[in-house]
Write a protein that binds this DNA or RNA. Sequence first.
RNA 1: GCCGAAGUGGCGGAACUGGUAGACGCGACAGUCUCAAAAACUGUUGAGGGGCAACUCUCGUGUCGGUUCGAGCCCGACCUUCGGCACCA
Length: 813
Amino acid sequence: MASNYVPAEIEKKWQQRWSAEGLYEAKDDDPRPRRYELTMFPYPSGDLHIGHWYAMAPSDVHARFKRMQGYNVLHPMGFDAFGLPAENAAIKHGVHPYIWTMRNIEQMRAQLRSMGSMYDWSREVVSCQPEYYRWTQWFFLKFYEAGLAYRAEAPVNWCPSCQTVLANEQVLANGECERCGTPVTRKELAQWFFRITKYADELLSYDGLDWSERLMTIQRNWIGRSVGAEIAFRLEREVAGVRELRVFTTRPDTIFGVTFVVIAPEHPLVAHLTTPERKAEVEQYIAWTRRQSEIERQSTEHEKTGVFIGSYVINQLNGARVPIWTSDYVLLSYGTGVVMGVPAHDTRDFEFAKRYGVDIKVVVAPPDWSGGELAEAYLGHGTMVNSGQFNGLPSQQGAEAICDFMEQKGLGKRTVTYRIRDWLVSRQRYWGAPIPMVYCDRCGIVPVPEKDLPVLLPPDAEFKPTGESPLKYCASFVNTTCPACGGPARRETDTMDTFMCSNWYFIRYTSPGYDKGPFDPEKVRMWMPVNLYTGGIEHAVLHLLYSRFFVKALRDIGLVKFSEPFIKMFNQGPIVQGKHKMSKSRGNVVAPDQYVAEVGADAVRAYLMFIGPWDQGGEWNDSGLVGMSRWLNRVWNMVTEGYQPSAVGTEEEKALRRMAHTSIKRVTQDLEAFRFNTMLARLMELTNYLGDVQEAGTVSVQAWDEAVERLLLLLAPSTPHLAEELWERTGHAFSIHNRQWPGWDEELTREDEITLVVQVNGKLRDRVTVSASITEAEAREVALGRERVRAHVGNKQVRRLVYVPGKLVNIVV
RNA sequence: GCCGAAGUGGCGGAACUGGUAGACGCGACAGUCUCAAAAACUGUUGAGGGGCAACUCUCGUGUCGGUUCGAGCCCGACCUUCGGCACCA
């Protein structure tokens, strides 16, 4: 007697059984080939929403599929547990961030289990726990030793709302804070940086990686490599011990067109180079640029302004005396902070020169140029003119010649500049890993000895944001002794950017309990690098770039042997609700719980995959969920109902086998390529087909059972509970998830008959069912003989006949 | 401004390397069951036209043009949407 499909019952039952049997625990000594499939760990905001499921369900399906294919799959989960929301919630509700975070983790763990994912919970990692952040701090010390961490006073991004500094990567293109949308301001602060720029070049190489072009482009743009030359302009007189101004240019071929030089207003040499009679005006200008917001200043519509500062430099290639100006269109942070002005061949310089009446000297002839004035800057290449000995050269060749010449004479050199800046890791907030450094009046900056790690967060700190770290006001934390001299000293009170925590969690999963180091080197050799990493593309220049840098740094320090953390990266699209990506802070989250209660986790998992291609994301809309539920019910009823053959036919059995084998093939290929939507469509088709066969009773019991078995195996990754339950009910032993993924026989997928399409002048006129082995001559004959074809051909002459084997005949008249 | 991705029924989306456009699902309509409704099941469903009918014709993948026996797919121009970078020298 068939019973009803009650997801709530079977899902709970199997989740408990899987957990009790440790079914999904990846054993280090398992002889099967190892495979590491990872999903970005979530921030424990409190509630798992549909967006989380969208990221996690398909990756779980893929991991399950690989597991059935015979891999020893490591598929872990953890929590990215440091960060601002915990602290903000703590301030709001008067609860300690640790309590708040751990409570959320408990809740989310239960919700994650309700999804029926194959996470290996024995390896869970929680980044805010001392046994974890101890090693985050340890890495900081290693970076410091290796010269990759340094403290510097620099103008930094400041979010007035979050009351902390931000990395460049955390400031949106419009100048707003990535977290809260508040316009970011500038602040001059002494902060800790990681030398990511040292790896700029290596980070541009993706050899051996299977990453999307889109993702690589985002990272390449961010790194922003420019090839050019650094050129020295001699100062007329030495100032502050400096004899020359160096500029960076990508167009050394235009050096003879320099009619002014521009220095960034914040440049330390401005004060020295300003002549007394220009002083008042220059200072007034600099004060004015300071008042400009970052957004105003960075805008391309921003008008070019500037002042002449009184001094001159000599262009050493032609001896020209060139005035020095200062203007806020030149950025101190890029290149050398000084730019050579070539108005004829640079849009910005042109605009500037027009406004201030500076000479415009053409040195690369535009096509059809008659020697007259330019209406706008000519940016292209051409023949060099007004360039002394280099006249007549094509400008690209001329650039090389000029570089050779400058290098010989010591006037400049070829060089490469990057847009990317060093990673600012200090944060003026409580809820993060304390930076393990001590300041001693006698010894200066002293690292905390490894044996004294972790530097624990004091539980009794007041975490109200004041613009400085709350730790600064916690006397018991700040006051310490100098590890070097034993005298009184103060601790660094800033904490680390949480992206430092997420730089290595994937390595920690390989040996989560290890306490002799951040990871067990042997286990890392076994599991790393990650074979498949999935997560949102919003981390392109954050987590994904930082982690690549981090791993390269570890390699150079000698801690790991690999250079890239993630071999294949797949970015799922965002799941949006009302135009915006679902997030708790935005308040537009949709909880899966109600849906799970109504139709079961299996239906929700499958529905999320069915919405569309995984990398496209989409608007959340539950209207189609019922269809998924209907389908699973049909599967349930069909399988539990039993099968009675009536008129068994060998043709029908053959057709059923063909359907099964083509389904296996397509489902397998779709899973390999993350095409979950079409995989499910195919499974539905197979179900529909089986339904018809069941009704007709045209195959033997064995053939039926075999087909059902295959359907269940194909369903196992997507709807693990339903597949497991039906597997048991059809008399199989626990567990379907330990069974081998079915293979297909290409021979059995072949059709005996095909539909031959007949076109006349490219228009579909008829379809004929013919033997798959039809010859061209036969196909022509069949096509020309069809009545409907003849009606369209009439008595026109057949000019040509195109035959595509197995597909169509096109008659051209 | 530069770079990249994408535009297909009422909706989400299929369509392998140029070869049957609209798979699969939602919704809608009709039917079965029911006192009725819900659920479930069955059928129809791109638009327009012709025919009593089996059927048949025309149009149709953002717009315009091109290549080809044949274009959703390739090429050119444009429109729209989304994303990245942007005074980066």
